[in-house]
C-alpha cells in the first residue's frame, strides 16, 4: 500500500491542526528572533498588529469574532515567517480581509485599505480622505491579495479557529460568576 519514493514508503501524510499549541522551542525562537529581531520589538509589532486589526474591524463594523480570528491568524503567521521579511501592516490587512471571509462577513479589499489608511493618517482634528485610485493603490491592493495567498499557504489553510471566549464564559457560568461583569467582559 502507498507509494514508494526514494526507498521510503508514503501511505498517508496528514497536516491538520489538532492542537494549536506551539512547542516551547518554537515560541522561544520565532522566525523573527532567528533573523536577529529583538524580542521586545517583536512583541511590540505583534501588539501593534493586533490593535490595528481590532481598530479597523470596529470601523468596518465587523463582528468581534472576525477580529479575534484575524488576530490569531496574524500571531500564527509570524511564527512561520519573520517581521523582517514581511510587512506587518500588509499582513494585518490580509489577516483582517481573510478573517472577514472566514467569518462570513466579507469586506472588500478597498474598504480595508481605506480604513487602514484612515487609521494611519487621521488625527484628532481632521479625518483622512479615502485613498486615491492611483498606481500606489493598485499595487497595495495586489500586495494584500498576495499576502492573503501567502497566509493561506503558511497556515496550510487551517484558518477556521475555535475561540476560547465562549468556553471562558461557560466556565464562569459554571462557577456562578456570570454576574461578575468585569470577568465576563475580559473574556
Amino acid at each position: 500500500e502507498g507509494i514508494l519514493i526514494g526507498g521510503k514508503r508514503y501511505s498517508e501524510v496528514t497536516i491538520t491542526l489538532e492542537t494549536c499549541l506551539l512547542p516551547p522551542e518554537r515560541l522561544a525562537r520565532s522566525p523573527s528572533a532567528v533573523l536577529g529581531l529583538s524580542a521586545d520589538t517583536e512583541e511590540q509589532l505583534r501588539i501593534r498588529g493586533c490593535e490595528e486589526i481590532q481598530a479597523a474591524g470596529i470601523l468596518l463594523r465587523l463582528p468581534q469574532v472576525a477580529m479575534a480570528t484575524g488576530q490569531v491568524l496574524f500571531q500564527r503567521f509570524f511564527y512561520c515567517k519573520s517581521f523582517i521579511r514581511h510587512c506587518a501592516e500588509m499582513v494585518a490587512m490580509a489577516c483582517l480581509h481573510l478573517a472577514s471571509k472566514i467569518e462570513e462577513e466579507p469586506r472588500r479589499v478597498r474598504d480595508i485599505l481605506n480604513v487602514f489608511h484612515h487609521l494611519k493618517h487621521s488625527t484628532e482634528h481632521r479625518t483622512a480622505k479615502p485613498m486615491p485610485l492611483d498606481s500606489t493603490y493598485i499595487s497595495m491592493k495586489s500586495e494584500v491579495i498576495r499576502a492573503e495567498r501567502q497566509l493561506l499557504k503558511e497556515l496550510g489553510f487551517c484558518v477556521h479557529i475555535k475561540h476560547p471566549h465562549k468556553v471562558i464564559v461557560m466556565y464562569l457560568q459554571v462557577l456562578e460568576c456570570e454576574r461578575n461583569t468585569k470577568l465576563v467582559q475580559k473574556a
Binding site: I102, I145, F157
Partner: peptide
C-alpha cells in the same frame, strides 16, 4: 484578482 481567494474555496479547503 479583485478580492483574493473566494470564501467558498477557503471553506472547502479548510
Amino acid at each position: 484578482h479583485e478580492e483574493g481567494a473566494p470564501c467558498t474555496a477557503i471553506r472547502e479547503v479548510s
